[in-house]
Simulated scan of single mutants.
Amino acid sequence: MLNRAARLVARSRRASTTGATSQEWKAAGLGAQWAPPETTLNEIVFVQAGMGCDQHGTAGASKAATRACRQAIEFNALPYMETLLRDRGYERGRGDMLLKVEIGVPEDLVDSVSVEDIRAMFPYGRMLPVEVRAGGLDFQSGRVVEALGDAADRAVVAVAAVTVGF
């Protein structure tokens, strides 16, 4: 059995299946980058939670997890972040902010979450290792849609906590 750090590293190397928004950010030259391993979050500026659901949770929990991250950030703006970081000597502004993401998904789906997909949900910043752990919810959706790949009557809910700072 892999220890927690090894699982985080293995998860970070999985192939990404990003959504339309992250493709738009990529085309615009945006996208969060992985922070160096020794990076620590010292000052917290913003914390937000989000929830995401995949009503056809047969392919793991990545879709629900990315939706949770998106919900956590999509109705928020940090207009002063650029000034705050530059005033403290960070030359890249928002590009230097740190992102800490914690995800809760049903226990049997923890290893199914692609942290590359999670990273792709953020347009800028330096991403600390994404922590995925048991939490969230799964339930019967009341239907099986074989045309969508459903093999069972299962929906998956993920919760995300996104912390921004430097």
Rank of each mutant, 00 (worst) to 15 (best):
V132N: 09
A77S: 14
V115M: 11
A120E: 07
A152G: 04
R92Q: 12
S112E: 11
T83A: 09
E102N: 07
I118K: 09
V113A: 06
G142C: 03
G93C: 04
E131D: 15
L99F: 09
R126A: 06
E91Y: 01
A152F: 04
D111R: 00
I73R: 03
R143M: 11
E102I: 12
R143A: 11
M81Q: 11
A155V: 06
R86S: 09
L137A: 13
E146C: 01
L98H: 10
Y90V: 09
A77T: 13
D117F: 03
Y90T: 09
I103F: 03
D138C: 03
A120D: 15
E146S: 11
E131V: 15
A77Q: 14
L128I: 13
I118T: 10
D150I: 11
D153C: 00
A134N: 03
R133F: 07
L148A: 14
A147R: 10
G135H: 01
S112A: 02
A77R: 15
A134T: 14
D96W: 04
R133I: 06
A147Q: 15
G136H: 07
E74T: 07
D96N: 12
L78F: 05
M97Y: 06
T83Y: 07
V157A: 14
P123W: 00
V130F: 00
V144S: 09
D153W: 02
V115H: 14
S141E: 10
R133Q: 14
V132M: 08
L84M: 13
L98P: 07
V105M: 10
L85C: 05
V115L: 14
K100A: 12
L78K: 10
R94N: 15
S114G: 05
A134K: 15
